[in-house]
C-alpha cells in the first residue's frame, strides 16, 4: 500500500523497476516451466509432457467453448501464454516479495494496473486486428452500428469499458489479496509473540486462498479475453 518504487526515466518514458523486474521474472519462470516440461516430446507422453498437454488442453477448451474449432489454431498459443503468464505473475508475490532499502523490487506484477492494462491492451488489439482481417475495414466499422444504429455510442463505450473491466478486475483481485497479506503481516508484528501466533494461521489461510484467487483470475482473464475476441469475430 505504502510501498515505494524506484523509477527509471528512459527516452521520455517512465519505468517502474518493480513492475518490470517482476514481469521479467514471471516471464522467465513461465519459460523455464514450459521449457522444462517440453524436453522429451514423444508420441506416448511422459509425466512432464502430460502436465503440459493438460494445460494446453485446458486453454484450448476455453477457446473451443466460445469459437469454432478452427480458432484454436489461431488463438491457442495466445491463450496458453496469457494463462500461464498471468497465473505465475499472480503467484509470484505470494511466494516472495523483495524490498531493499524501503523500495519494493519484486512482487506480483499484476498488482499494478499498468501491467494488467498492458495485458488487456494486447487482448483487445488482437480482437480488433482479427476483426478487421475477417470483415475488412468497412465491415469492422459497420459492426459498430449493429444490430441497430442508435447503439453506436454504447458500442464505442463498450470498447473502453471492456478494456477497463478486463484490466482492473485482475488488478483489483490480486492487489487486494496482497494488501490483506501485508495487513495480516502488520498485525503479526504489532503485539509480539501473541499476535504472531494468531496471525500466522490467518496469513497461511489467506495465502492459500490467494493462490486459489490467482488461479481463478488467470482463468477469468483468459476466458474474457477470448470472449472479447470471439465477439469481435461474429456478425450480429
Amino acid at each position: 500500500m505504502d510501498d515505494k518504487y524506484k523509477f527509471i526515466d528512459f527516452l521520455g518514458l517512465r519505468f517502474n523497476v518493480a513492475n518490470d523486474l517482476s514481469a521479467l521474472i514471471s516471464a522467465i519462470i513461465v519459460f523455464v516451466f514450459v521449457y522444462s516440461l517440453s524436453r522429451k516430446v514423444t508420441m506416448r507422453p511422459g509425466k512432464a509432457q502430460n502436465v503440459l498437454e493438460w494445460i494446453i488442453d485446458f486453454t484450448n477448451n476455453i477457446i473451443k467453448s466460445l469459437m469454432p474449432d478452427a480458432a484454436v489454431k489461431q488463438f491457442g498459443l495466445y491463450a496458453f501464454v496469457l494463462f500461464t503468464f498471468v497465473f505465475f505473475a499472480n503467484q509470484l508475490g505470494l511466494i516472495f516479495q523483495v524490498k531493499v532499502g524501503g523500495y519494493t523490487y519484486i512482487k506480483s506484477p499484476t498488482t499494478n494496473p499498468m501491467v494488467t492494462m498492458a495485458l488487456a491492451l494486447i487482448s483487445l488489439l488482437i480482437s480488433h486486428y482479427y476483426s478487421v482481417k475477417k470483415f475488412g475495414f468497412g465491415g469492422y466499422v459497420s459492426n459498430y452500428v449493429k444490430p441497430v444504429g442508435f447503439l453506436l455510442p454504447i458500442n464505442i463505450l463498450e470498447e473502453f469499458t471492456n478494456f477497463l473491466t478486463l484490466s482492473l478486475r485482475l488488478y483489483g483481485n490480486i492487489f487486494a489479496g496482497e494488501v490483506l497479506l501485508a495487513l495480516i503481516g502488520t498485525v503479526a508484528k504489532s503485539f509480539g509473540v501473541v499476535s504472531l501466533v494468531v496471525a500466522l494461521p490467518l496469513e497461511m489461510i489467506w495465502q492459500g486462498f490467494s493462490v486459489f484467487i490467482g488461479a481463478i483470475q488467470a482463468y477469468v482473464f483468459t476466458t474474457l479475453s477470448m470472449v472479447y475476441i470471439s465477439r469481435k469475430l461474429e456478425q450480429e
Binding site: 517512465r14 513492475n19 495485458l119
Partner: peptide
C-alpha cells in the same frame, strides 16, 4: 508519473515470451 514505460516493457516481454514458448514448447 504515469509509468507508460511499463506497458511497453510488458508488451515487449510478453511478445518475446510468446515467441520463445512457441519455438521451444508450444
Amino acid at each position: 508519473k504515469l509509468a507508460l514505460g511499463d506497458m511497453l516493457f510488458i508488451l515487449i516481454s510478453f511478445v518475446l515470451l510468446t515467441a520463445l514458448v512457441k519455438k521451444f514448447a508450444w
